[in-house]
């Protein structure tokens, strides 16, 4: 009894609520005769394409910046790189790889500048990050209209600029998902996607245990301590910001290939919030996070969303109830985490 109590405490109330909610949804799936295998396949893909975006929170929280609400900056880098890869008609895995490589270059520059800015606004990183993200996304709306892209596949057939959504069929639609894909019964296992996620998570896990990772952790959790030990906390924060932006850029490319299209203009505006919510559900706080938190959180959060969608549409055929749930859950968990910051102080 005591053991379970301690276990519950360790797991935390929010996670219990989420798991209970997931259970209810799964029961509903059973009752409503929704094809379970299809839901499971979708669930695996959703977890896979979202996990790198959530992983972007790891370096930022560990380096002391906190939850990176400026994730859209990284996403923009990824989108820009993606557009360049499409412009030059890179296809298949090569296309994805090229997009990632280009995005890393953009992300390093943007992440570095963003890190410099965040070092000047310590204590307001979340708010500044959010609105920097919003500003850049809306500035990019103009850029998408006037940047000199020529490939007719990505431009509006008539009028100015790039399309709102760009279907990836001719380039690398689901290229990673379908790599070495096999089926267990009816369930599709996207081996390539799972392997990619595993590689990124593994690299971050190794990073956390490396000298640089441990130094970054010290700088993030106690800047004064790290200063005493001869570590420049500001530099660590910049490294954290760069890594987070790089992961954001790569994350959106993986997301887009699994999803089937790139979404430009205002689409990246709110993309930081589900990523933040996912890691918080996984047990991270504004100052503490591990790869385990990211994986667990994305699993729970994306499972809920992918199970909720068919359930919701079975109950309310019109409208998008699962979207409403997503809003409530993701913002609710962020509010919960914010109220905890206050108590710590």
């Amino acid at each position: 009894m005591k053991k379970t109590k301690r276990y519950i405490q360790k797991l935390g109330v929010p996670r219990l609520i989420m798991l209970a909610f997931l259970m209810i949804l799964l029961i509903a799936v059973g009752i409503l005769h929704i094809p379970f295998t299809l839901t499971l396949s979708q669930c695996i893909v959703r977890v896979g394409i979202n996990i790198v975006l959530a992983l972007a929170m790891l370096p930022s929280i560990r380096s002391g910046i906190g939850m990176n609400f400026g994730l859209p900056l990284g996403i923009i880098c990824g989108l820009l790189a993606g557009m360049i890869s499409l412009e030059y008609n890179f296809t298949g895995l090569m296309g994805i790889l090229m997009a990632m490589l280009i995005s890393i270059i953009f992300s390093i520059i943007v992440g570095w500048l963003y890190g410099l800015l965040l070092n000047k606004v310590k204590g307001s990183e979340m708010m500044v990050g959010t609105y920097m993200g919003f500003s850049i996304v809306s500035l990019m709306c103009i850029a998408w209209m006037i940047l000199p892209f020529h490939n007719t596949g990505i431009r509006w057939p008539m009028g100015n600029g790039l399309r709102m959504t760009i279907t990836l069929e001719q380039w690398y639609d689901r290229a990673l998902n379908e790599l070495w894909m096999f089926k267990i019964g009816e369930v599709e296992i996207p081996t390539g996607l799972i392997l990619t996620c595993a590689v990124f998570c593994g690299v971050m896990w190794l990073f956390c245990r490396s000298r640089l990772g441990i130094r970054m952790l010290a700088a993030g959790s106690n800047p004064e301590f790290s200063k005493f030990s001869g570590i420049d906390a500001n530099r660590q924060r910049i490294i954290g910001s760069i890594l987070s932006t790089v992961l954001g850029g790569i994350g959106i490319i993986i997301y887009a290939q699994g999803f089937g299209f790139y979404q430009l203009y205002t689409a990246p505006l709110m993309m930081a919030f589900p990523a933040v919510a996912a890691v918080l559900i996984g047990g991270a706080t504004a100052s503490k996070i591990s790869v385990g938190n990211v994986v667990l959180g994305t699993l729970i959060f994306q499972s809920i969303l992918s199970v909720a969608a068919p359930v919701a549409s079975a109950i309310f055929p019109e409208g998008n109830l699962s979207e409403v749930f997503r809003t409530i859950i993701s913002n609710g968990i962020i509010l919960y985490a914010l109220s905890k910051i206050g108590r710590e102080e």
Binding site: I214, F225, G230
Partner: peptide
């Protein structure tokens, strides 16, 4: 050994192990 134990002396939310070996590891 700093006078400000909680401020500059320790990584409070890290393990004893990390705290003990940190300087040797880092420097």
């Amino acid at each position: 050994v700093s006078e400000d134990r909680k401020g500059v002396g320790l990584l409070l939310d890290q393990s004893i192990l990390t705290n003990i070996i940190f300087n040797n590891l880092s420097l």
